[in-house]
């Protein structure tokens, strides 16, 4: 079998690994929303259960994809790791402590580039280095190096509006990686790109990650996406989530061989890849179908 289902929190890609880098312990998240009056005339607020009973452990160096439809709480989990959101109940542990903002060992990449439009590409990449106290010379050298790494040599002095969508996301990737954080939080980083640019960027990102970005160990990646294929293509492990309330439906290790960066286009058409995605797809869609049937009318 190319895939195996994980049973319980103990099962990870490397069973021999010590205590996990990240653990979610029975995490619940409830957002209180202001809403118009409901059918009972109560009105006021409405509780939205974004996450329910999340138990996940992620070991250092693992590439984990969180997949699910919008509203399944995957971005909330990412924001918890960044320290932007604190769980209503349960516990999130990152490297032994509760995540705090800001964490200088985190790189966060967004679906929309979030580049500062008044800064050049190079100055955007320098931003995280500024908060980490690098001096001017070091920042410039590092930013140039990172832009070259993502294939933007010669574009250093261009502003956001002068760059294409794909190039903006490349700059954002360079910024995310610039300070060499050991944990990458990626929130649908390639979702806004057209199919071809997306594949190119996925391959580039994977190449950088698989080559450890010149470092001695792989970075831990938590990669949020709604695209199952993307998840299977890139990740070591895919966690399928379901919405309303946000919960985990499936947690699988993807045993596709690495490095994959050079053959991403090919891998998509292998039987193994198709079987894995098909399996997960049925799990995702099947669960949604049965939930819809079982749901009481509103």
């Amino acid at each position: 079998m190319a895939t195996r289902t994980e049973n319980g929190p103990a099962a990870t890609a490397e069973p021999s690994a010590p205590s996990p880098l990240i653990s979610f312990k029975d995490v619940h998240q409830v957002f209180r929303l202001q809403s118009a009056k409901d059918e009972n005339g109560a009105g006021g607020t409405r509780d939205l259960v974004a996450l329910q009973g999340i138990d996940v452990e992620i070991h250092s160096g693992q590439f984990v994809a969180l997949v699910g439809a919008s509203g399944c709480g995957k971005t909330t989990m990412l924001n918890m790791l960044a320290g932007l959101v604190h769980p209503t109940s349960g516990e999130v542990v990152l490297d032994g402590t509760a995540p705090e903002l800001p964490n200088m060992d985190i790189g966060y990449m967004f679906a929309r580039d979030a580049l500062l439009p008044w800064r050049t590409a190079r100055k955007n990449v320098e931003l995280p280095l500024e908060t980490r106290g690098w001096n001017r010379r070091e920042r410039q050298d590092r930013a140039r190096e990172m832009l070259e790494l993502v294939g933007l040599k010669g574009r250093e002095s261009q502003y956001r509006l002068q760059l294409s969508q794909g190039m903006r996301q490349r700059v954002a990737l360079a910024r995310t990686l610039a300070a060499d954080p050991s944990l990458l939080l990626m929130d649908e980083p390639f979702a806004a790109l057209d199919a071809r640019t997306k594949l190119t960027l996925q391959a580039e990102f994977l190449r950088i990650w698989e080559q450890h970005q010149g470092g001695d160990r792989r970075k831990t990646v938590v990669f949020v996406t709604h695209d199952l294929q993307e998840a299977v293509l890139l990740a070591d492990r895919v966690i399928v989530m379901l919405p309303h309330p946000g919960r985990i439906a499936e947690d699988r290790v993807i045993d596709l061989p690495r490095p994959r960066a050079e053959d991403l286009g090919e891998i998509q058409f292998t039987d193994e890849f198709q079987r894995i995605t098909h399996d997960l797809f049925e799990r995702l869609e099947g669960a949604i179908g049965s939930r819809a049937e079982g749901r009481a009318p509103r």
């Binding site: 960044a82 932007l84 903002l101 800001p102 200088m104 985190i106 966060y108 967004f110 929309r112 979030a114 500062l116 931003l127 995280p128 500024e130 908060t131 980490r132």
Partner: peptide, 18 residues
């Protein structure tokens, strides 16, 4: 101010004056 930029800035570690 764009909400994405603010989130990015906070994650990157910018505070108050900066």
């Amino acid at each position: 101010v764009d909400a994405d930029l603010m989130t990015m800035a906070r994650v990157v570690g910018l505070k108050r004056a900066s």
